[in-house]
Design a protein around this nucleic acid. Structure first.
Ligand SMILES: [Zn+2]
Ligand SMILES: [Zn+2]
Ligand SMILES: [Zn+2]
Ligand SMILES: [Zn+2]
Lengths: 130, 130
DNA sequence: TTTGAATTGTTATAATATAACACTATGTAA
DNA sequence: TTACATAGTGTTATATTATAACAATTCAAA
């Protein structure tokens, strides 16, 4: 059902880095880490990030200005995202809950407005930090 | 039940500006608008914004780096926020839905983690732009 | 093989946010 | 009242995040 996107060289380099990272990465940290691979300017990073977000390979954690690889197979585009964020250790996990996504996908506000996209960020303390 | 916070001079000036604004305001636009009142530096703005967010008088729209006054009486702190964002005209409204907030306040993830705070941003087209 | 869309490389700059430090107000308690 | 703590202020400098503009290149579809 989902279209395969062949990543370009820069996109692949940057995706691999984010995918390997145990935590979300920030743009300039990505830049620092890929300079040895020939990616030298912020724009090269941001352009790859934009594309990777667009095709759903990564998501942006808005409250942290950081990027995380998507490991949720039912999530091929960044249109319905939910994250769990520990406010102490900053551990961030993508939430994959059928009931949550169903509830939010069907949510209508008072005007009957229906939404094509949402992003939800939960904050609290993870197991380890509690 | 909720504690009244007496705003300081800078906090009041900045709150009044945001509260009067028909749309969310960005920090440097706020700065520009309050310079005639003697607030000259970004830090003065950010400090007031931090405090106003903390006490729930305003909220930050994370995906837009913008600030909006809270008009939701049941929302005295910024711990459970939901917004509707039109992707064309950028009209942004705070959503006040008892069922939504109840659902999210009780949401537990797979690990049984319960959250103390959340922020939800819905994207779509408003009435006018549809 | 042309042609158009996407991607790249590059320099410069814009926009958003915080560090550090000295000072001032304000409230609370001895 | 005096002392103390907490919060707020003013200021300069700097860090962090993100985009504008333009020329060159790649690559697949018509
Ligand atoms: Zn995902
Ligand atoms: Zn933690
Ligand atoms: Zn509110
Ligand atoms: Zn609209």
């Amino acid at each position: 059902m989902h279209k395969e996107h062949t990543l370009t060289k820069n996109q692949q380099i940057i995706f691999d880095l984010i995918d390997k990272s145990p935590e979300p990465m920030k743009a300039y940290s990505i830049l620092f880490n890929v300079q040895k691979k020939g990616i030298k300017a912020p724009l090269q990073v941001y352009r790859a990030l934009d594309k990777l977000v667009e095709i759903g390979k990564i998501h942006k954690i808005e409250s942290r200005n950081a990027f995380i690889a998507c490991h949720n197979s039912s999530c091929q585009v960044s249109k319905a995202t939910a994250f769990s964020i520990c406010e102490i250790c900053e551990k961030i996990t993508e939430i994959s809950s059928a009931s949550l996504s169903k509830y939010l996908a069907n949510f209508k506000d008072k005007d009957g407005m229906k939404y094509s996209k949402y992003n939800l960020e939960f904050f609290g303390l993870c197991k380890k930090c509690r």
